[in-house]
Amino acid sequence: PPLTGVIRSVVLILTLLGTWFLMQTYFDHRWKVINPRSWLAKQPPRHKCGNQRSCPQNYFAFKITSGAANVVGPSICFEDKIIMSSVKNNIGRGLNIMLVNGTNGKLLKTGIFDMYSGDINKLDAFLQEIKVGTIVLVASYDDPATKMNAKVQAHFERLGSSHVRKLGFRDNWVFLGAKGMKNKSPFEEHIKNDRKTNKYDGWPEMLEMEGCTPRKMD
Rank of each mutant, 00 (worst) to 15 (best):
P1Y: 05
I7S: 12
I7Q: 12
L12R: 15
L14V: 14
T15M: 15
T15Q: 08
L17Y: 14
T19K: 11
M23W: 06
Q24P: 06
T25E: 05
F27E: 06
D28G: 06
H29W: 08
R30I: 00
R30Y: 04
W31S: 01
W31Y: 15
K32L: 03
K32E: 02
V33K: 15
I34C: 01
I34A: 00
R37L: 11
S38P: 09
L40I: 11
A41P: 14
R46C: 06
R46A: 04
K48N: 11
K48T: 04
N51G: 14
Q52P: 02
Q52Y: 10
R53T: 05
R53A: 12
C55Y: 03
P56Y: 11
F62I: 05
F62M: 08
K63H: 09
G67T: 07
V71C: 00
G73H: 08
P74A: 07
P74E: 05
I76E: 01
F78G: 15
F78T: 05
D80Q: 13
D80K: 08
V87E: 13
K88A: 01
N89V: 09
N90A: 00
N90C: 02
R93Y: 02
G94K: 03
L95G: 09
I97W: 03
T103K: 15
T103P: 05
G105V: 14
G105S: 10
G105P: 15
K106P: 02
L107P: 15
L108H: 07
T110G: 05
G111C: 07
F113K: 08
D114I: 03
Y116F: 00
Y116C: 00
S117R: 13
G118C: 10
G118F: 09
I120S: 13
L123S: 14
L127N: 12
Q128E: 10
E129V: 07
I130Q: 07
V132P: 04
I135A: 12
V138Q: 03
A139V: 02
S140Y: 12
Y141T: 03
D142A: 01
A145M: 07
A145V: 01
A150S: 10
A150T: 06
A150Y: 06
H155F: 13
R158E: 05
L159V: 13
G160E: 02
S162I: 11
H163D: 13
V164E: 06
R165D: 10
G168H: 02
R170W: 05
D171S: 04
N172E: 04
W173F: 09
W173V: 08
V174A: 15
V174S: 10
F175Y: 04
G177D: 04
G177A: 09
G180F: 13
G180S: 05
G180Q: 13
K182P: 01
K182A: 02
K182N: 06
N183Q: 06
K184M: 04
P186T: 10
F187T: 04
E188I: 08
E189K: 11
H190N: 00
I191R: 12
I191A: 07
D194S: 14
D194A: 10
K196C: 14
N198S: 06
Y200V: 01
D201T: 01
G202E: 01
W203C: 00
P204M: 02
E205D: 15
M206G: 03
L207Q: 11
L207C: 14
E208W: 03
E210D: 14
G211P: 07
C212L: 09
C212N: 12
P214L: 12
P214V: 14
K216W: 08
